[in-house]
Amino acid sequence: MFTYGQVEAALAKLHGVDSRALGAFRGRIKHFQRLGIVPSSPGRGRKISYEMEHVLIWTFCLELSQFGIDPTIIERFVRASGYAIIAEFEKASRLTEDIYWAFYPNIMSNWFYSDDGLFGTIRTDCFSASQVSATKIEVEFGRRVSLINLTKLKKELDAALEELKDD
């Protein structure tokens, strides 16, 4: 279990956020709370504890933000596949080989309707390091693909969280 302050500090460290940019960064992670991706504060003066799964989802959302994907698209994507993302993080923690999450955003041209409106698609797959090759990626995704090394991301997150325990 983690406090909001611990999560914020770990995520800021993970993303190399300078103290001068902490306000904007805090706004981004609070925005994900307002979208309902992770639990928000239960009220003034009351604290909420976050499970590791919440921290992983926040971490993943911020990685997608690094690609410039709109938070509302991220929110819809995470609602549709959040548990699969957590499972991939867990798999990345167990295996000796790095796991890469590959995605092909098709946000401008491939739309479908969900209960709360239009949603561009984000096609995904996971590969181990030995499976990642230009040929495989081209066959699976075509001309455009983005990769996130889930193993490295999880290790860096764990190190940032562990460092908070020492403080």
Rank of each mutant, 00 (worst) to 15 (best):
E162N: 09
E97Y: 00
N149G: 01
L35N: 07
Q33M: 10
E140Y: 05
R79M: 04
W58G: 08
S114K: 14
Y113V: 08
E88A: 15
V78F: 09
D158R: 08
Q131E: 15
L56A: 03
F25M: 11
S81M: 03
F25Y: 06
C126T: 15
R144D: 10
T96D: 13
C126N: 13
H31V: 07
I99A: 00
G5S: 11
F119G: 08
E90H: 15
V132S: 07
E163I: 08
D166P: 09
L64E: 07
R20L: 14
G23P: 05
S41I: 02
T151L: 00
P71S: 04
R76E: 14
F127W: 12
M1N: 06
T96Y: 04
I85T: 01
T124N: 04
Q131C: 02
D70H: 13
E63K: 09
R26W: 03
Y104P: 00
K136R: 13
Q6R: 12
E51S: 10
V17I: 15
R26I: 01
R26S: 15
Y4C: 00
F103I: 03
D125Q: 04
D166R: 14
A129L: 11
Q6I: 12
A84G: 11
P71C: 01
S19Y: 15
R143A: 01
S109E: 13
I99E: 00
I73F: 07
A24L: 06
I69F: 07
E63W: 08
L14H: 05
V55P: 02
E53Q: 14
L118A: 04
L22A: 04
I73G: 01
G120Q: 02
L35W: 12
L164Y: 03
Y113T: 13
P71V: 09
K165M: 10
T135K: 14
Q66I: 09
V78W: 01
A102L: 13
Y83I: 10
I29P: 04
I107G: 11
R44F: 11
K91L: 13
K165R: 12
L62Q: 07
E8H: 06
R143P: 07
W101I: 09
E75P: 02
G120F: 06
S130A: 14
T124L: 01
I137S: 05
M108F: 12
I122K: 06
E90F: 12
E90G: 00
E63V: 10
V78K: 03
T59G: 09
D116I: 06
F60A: 02
M52E: 13
Y4F: 08
F32C: 05
F127M: 07
S65N: 03
C61Q: 00
L56W: 09
